[in-house]
Design a protein around this nucleic acid. Structure first.
Lengths: 101, 101
DNA sequence: ATACCATGTTAGCGAACGATGACAATTGCA
DNA sequence: TGCAATTGTCATCGTTCGCTAACATGGTAT
């Protein structure tokens, strides 16, 4: 699922919150924000502070990720990053065994 | 790549902007924000308005997505990750300074 | 019907945003 | 080295955030 607007975020937050059986007051208390802020976030308020939004998504176990492979700046021809990609998860896995998820 | 904090977003924005050869003023003009706002965003300002941040990422062709499958599995497991998260990009950045392009 | 709970709305207030403009510091190139 | 472009910092100002408190609305069960 791709997030383009604050409305997308609002819908996602509401779904995830309800999926856990939490009230707006529950989530607000966990985040240390007011219930009013949760109401407005779920309504798609686009002036909400990004730090609070990220904390909300983290609290709801929603990993926010970007796929730079499909991103468009690779078009330019010049290489985006001269340092080779390193998958730290694989390195850790080989050293210590499987990562619990 | 997973975005957890505003610092992650700041680093990403800076990398993508430079990858396109844009100045801060260029990006600011495209977004209709001040250059100061771009400076602070790239510095990881966590009080930036989420709507503007999403517009910045869209302008830089960075698709923001969530993987609800892994989110569900994270919830069911006893612990999400026993090994501390390591951001290899930040390690490289701090060790080498800005990446030349 | 009514008691209860969750959600939505409004008003007022202190705090902080984002803008502008100017200047300093840094980077890159001839 | 020296110059120009880019980036970082600061002060000020109008606007708006997020908070608290109170009240309204909607759904549910007894």
């Amino acid at each position: 699922m791709i997030l383009r607007t604050s409305t997308d975020i609002g819908n996602l937050v509401r779904d995830r919150r309800k999926g856990r059986g939490w009230t707006q007051a529950d989530l607000a208390k966990r985040l240390g924000v007011s219930r009013l802020w949760i109401v407005q976030l779920e309504q798609g308020k686009d002036t909400a502070q990004v730090g609070l939004v990220l904390r909300a998504l983290n609290e709801l176990d929603v990993p926010v990720q970007v796929d730079l492979q499909s991103a468009a700046s690779m078009r330019s021809g010049t290489s985006y990053r001269e340092i080779p990609f390193v998958d730290i998860d694989n390195i850790i896995r080989e050293a210590t065994g499987p990562i619990k998820r």
